[in-house]
Amino acid sequence: MGSKIVVCRCEDVTRADLEHSVARGYRDIEEVKRYTGFGTGPCQGKECLAVVATALAEITGEDPSFIAPFTSRPPLAPTPIKLLARDPAAHRFPDDPAEPVAAASEEET
């Protein structure tokens, strides 16, 4: 039945995948993330993290309050490279063009 329950829609991870990961010994939420790939798609865990944590607590029998969320990774939402390229935080190398990158002259993002 667990194979029909999708816990991460971005990466098609099912509850059965979580059970399999735990059975293999990968039960820490960071290990489960790496073993199953859950939380590594476009939502970066925003949709799936709580669902997976709840399921993991059930599967492992651990107190849910001991399951910490995995480290969240920037950017907050998928961000186009050309938008980031215009950010003034960028380090300038000697061979960088003085003008803003070509992408900046194109239309908006």
Binding site: T40, G41, P42, Q44, R73, P74, P75, P78, T79, P80, I81, K82, L83, L84, A85, R86, D87, A90, F93, D96, P97, V101, A102, A103, E106
Partner: peptide, 19 residues
């Protein structure tokens, strides 16, 4: 991102998911 679009401009519209 700045160096990547300089080297491969076509990647400008690709989105970064995580760092």
């Amino acid at each position: 991102s700045r160096r990547l679009v300089k080297l491969m401009p076509r990647l400008g519209d690709v989105k970064i998911l995580r760092q």
